[in-house]
Design a protein around this nucleic acid. Structure first.
Lengths: 212, 212
DNA sequence: GCGTTTACTGAGTGACAAGTCACTTACTTA
DNA sequence: TAAGTAAGTGACTTGTCACTCAGTAAACGC
């Protein structure tokens, strides 16, 4: 008879939490925000629903914890690729845009964006995600400083990063159903060119043309 | 005793459909995609749930019809403002970006974007919205041609429009909770400047810098 | 007017959701 | 090793969901 290995309580907690968080992200990716139920997450994690509620008091807490866990992991994945980027400014800028684009094409991030949209009218979820956002934004800006160090000292560096990220974000969710793949590719190429220019240009022009 | 006015069947159908569609959009705006239930929509419209299902066979059909109804209405609202825009190219480009931004800040459009995200994992909804998208995109491009007629003949005009719309879309949903209003305003100003440049520049540079 | 068709009502129905709870099993500590 | 605590179980409660249907009222065609 096979005896189960003896584990400390801390180990049991850690593994169960990990399985629940992974199951939550997987369910979010596959089923969408509306398809994530505590029943489904518990089933995927291979634990009972009661166990889920022992570790997370509400469904919102579970979702927030999943996002809180997901963001740093994705950023670490992106950071690992920094040494492989070209050093030439223009080539590097293009590569940075490509990197950002690829991150936004990952289903994990699509799922996270979906959660953020759902938080628009879900106060609990919004509060939970709000706690995640500030450190995440700081990590994004820190990573951006590694990616384009020659711009990191610019006065409006944070704003520049936000513009680039927002644009890619908008484009990534753009067309759901890509009626015309050629048009989509052309659009992506155009945006890549525009954003690359933005990165290799001095940040000074960004302070011009304030809203009238 | 007040007799109810006599209405034709077509009129009855039209008014009930209209009330249901308006109620759907209102619920979508106020409660979000997850908060839209057939019960709630029927309650807001002042009809029974049975009446709802007489006019729309499924909830997905109702949502799709609501979006199909919403998009042209919003575009007509935007078109009505065309005559008020400045004629000078640079001022007009800036005004166009502002117009677009204001449209994306309207809760109706935010709600529609939320629906599109939800459609990522909802095949029925995706199919329903897919039928809406093509004519909508055509209407958007037609309106864009009115807004910036001097660019309308450009070979990649459609791609240019998509880039601008996507960027504003991404920025509009950017931060949910705007920790720093000054940073948000600066980001918007930067994006406005960038996109305005994009509109007043000749479209030729957009064909440069294709992805490596 | 009068039978037929169309619009609408409102009380269902079964499925499934989040969260609870009495109880069992696994670890810890003295 | 025995008492105490933390982790986990699975059936259960309460509520809401999308959708149905038998019956009623309004408009239509003749």
């Amino acid at each position: 008879m096979v005896l189960p290995p003896r584990r400390t309580q801390a180990e049991r907690t850690a593994t169960t939490r990990r399985r629940l968080l992974d199951a939550t992200v997987a369910a979010l990716v596959e089923l969408g925000a509306s398809g994530v139920t505590t029943t489904e997450v518990a089933r995927r994690a291979g634990v009972s629903q009661g166990a889920l509620f022992r570790h997370f008091p509400t469904k919102g807490a579970l979702l927030a914890a999943a996002v809180e866990d997901l963001f740093p992991r994705m950023l670490e994945g992106a950071r690992a690729r920094v040494p492989t980027l070209p050093v030439d400014a223009e080539a590097r800028a293009g590569a940075v845009i490509d990197l950002l684009w690829e991150e936004y094409e990952r289903p994990e991030l699509q799922a996270a964006v979906e959660l953020y949209m759902a938080a628009r009218t879900d106060r609990d979820l919004a509060a939970a995600l709000g706690r995640v956002e500030h450190p995440h934004r700081q990590r994004v800006h820190a990573l951006a400083a590694e990616l384009v160090p020659e711009l990191a000292g610019a006065t409006n560096f944070a704003g520049l990063v936000d513009v680039v990220v927002d644009a890619v974000q908008g484009a990534s969710m753009g067309r759901l159903h890509v009626l015309d793949p050629d048009a989509a590719a052309a659009g992506r190429a155009a945006m890549r060119a525009t954003l690359t220019q933005l990165l290799i240009a001095t940040p000074v022009p960004l302070t011009l043309g304030a809203p009238s």
